[in-house]
Simulated assay, not measured.
Amino acid sequence: MAPPDTYRTHCDTFTTAVRDLCRTPGIRAALERGHGRPVDECDRRAHGVLAPLARGFGARRAHWTVAGLIALERPDRHHLDLAALHTRRSDLPWHRRPNLGTSLAHAFTATPRDRDNAARRLRALIHLGPEQLHRTLPGLTRRLLNEAAAPDFAVLLSDLAAWDTHRRTVGTRWLDGFHLTPDLTDDTEPTPQTVDHPTAATPQHPPP
């Protein structure tokens, strides 16, 4: 099992590599077709490019799912400068980077009703088992991107890798990220977090 800092570095390296791969339309399409499916149901071309990137770090389903989510990014369709945003985030300390709860807060805070609905959606999300969670994330990611609230996919990868054994810890951190995020006027800036990432507690990542 990789030390927490090594795993976090891997998550950044993996997501950057996938983003580079998505510049090739055929690879982007192959990854996008995964749509949170089990690894053995994904496109063979996806296996060819992802297996070397994920080797030695386990949690294959988490890697394949996050790769499919990254493929949903369309820099030409969103006003966000995604490359600059991801670079800024990778320069932050890990505990200050936005988690999925933070992204929901950034996207749905226009009115108290929007925030209440987003809070209910998040509470339902953290009670999902791995299969349901992975299949729900593509639709949620599309909504976040449409609201110019791009998730931090490296943080999400680490969270999904820890989901089986640290779901309560991850879920609590997502709730904290949501409720501790103030209403924002600039959705491009990540919000500081105040709780440690569960990898600091050395989660057990499943073998490849």
Rank of each mutant, 00 (worst) to 15 (best):
R61C: 00
A67S: 12
P198A: 10
I126G: 02
L128C: 14
R88C: 09
A107P: 05
A161G: 15
R89T: 13
R19M: 01
D176G: 02
P4C: 09
V170G: 06
D164R: 12
L100T: 03
A30G: 11
L145G: 06
W163D: 01
A110R: 14
R97T: 09
R88Y: 15
W174D: 01
H63K: 13
G56E: 09
A105F: 05
R28L: 10
T6G: 06
P151L: 01
R121V: 08
A59F: 00
D187I: 12
F108W: 12
P182V: 09
W64S: 04
P182F: 04
N146R: 15
T111K: 15
L175K: 01
D40M: 10
I27E: 03
D183I: 11
D91F: 00
A149M: 07
E41V: 02
P93W: 06
T202K: 12
T181Y: 03
T185Q: 09
I70G: 01
H47D: 12
R45A: 14
T109W: 11
P4R: 12
G48Y: 11
C42L: 05
F178L: 09
R74P: 02
A201Q: 15
R74I: 05
T15I: 06
L128M: 15
D152A: 05
V49G: 13
F153N: 05
P190F: 03
P75A: 08
H86Y: 14
D40E: 13
L133G: 09
A51E: 13
T9A: 13
A162M: 12
T16E: 14
T191E: 07
A149Q: 06
L128A: 11
